[in-house]
Amino acid sequence: MVGRARFAFTVLCFGYAFLYVPIALVIAYSFNASRLVTVWAGFSLHWWQALLHNEAMLSAAWLSLRIALVSATLSTLLGLAAGYVLARVPRFPGRMLFGSLVIAPMVMPEVVMGISMLLLFVGSQQFLGGPDRGFLTIVIGHTTFSLSFVAIVVQARLADFDRSLEEAAMDLGATPWTTFRTVTLPLIAPALGSGWLLAFTLSLDDLIMTQFVAGAATQTLPMRVYSSVRLGVDPQINVLATIIVAVAAAALIVSVRLTRR
């Protein structure tokens, strides 16, 4: 038994190492003094300072953050509505189609989604005169695919929701809207919170869809990182990666806390 336990422990260590050593290395090398990404030359905060003065990178990060905030909020509202209908309305004309449409962005290749979005925006610009490609079109693009994830989370939460709680509220004199506001919403709030965080992270690191709908003048953080890597990697990338890992880890911890409650 001891031998088996030791074997299992070794396998576990390899598994964790495979997943986390690269991340740990990125974090460590963000404090590297050397100009080369892969050669260690002592501890330094040089590249952290450099990144903080890199206007292009910072403005791209700020743009990505704003897009992620807006699109996560929009996806949460729309995803809540879609998930609620899917969980609560057993039949209406086109229910099958609606259900498939909600899930479609999750299974459809993002390249296809990107092209179709681009065609839509080009068309709308020709015939309606807008919107110009940039902030708004990226938000719309990101919302389209993130809302599916929120809808699925909400639908799953409502599926195992005790309906008699809502009936009890109505029985006690609450209108359907008050029932939703005072009983349904507080009880599915953790699911909404984790849905929002999921949408936020999806938007923050999306590259493919963004490249199609961004237009020429707009550059988000992932686009900026991708293009700077192609020009030659700079240790600032390590610093940026470290910050993103920290933000993602924080979001993950909050999300787990929310769903556990």
Binding site: D162, S164, L165, E167, A168, A169, M170, D171, L172, G173, A174, T175, P176, V183, P186, L187
Partner: peptide, 20 residues
């Protein structure tokens, strides 16, 4: 007449107490 407008109250088998 909707449930919320009826002069009737119900005690549910599961009790349906609001957990929050």
């Amino acid at each position: 007449v909707s449930p919320h407008l009826r002069p009737v109250n119900m005690m549910f088998q599961s009790y349906a107490l609001f957990p929050h």
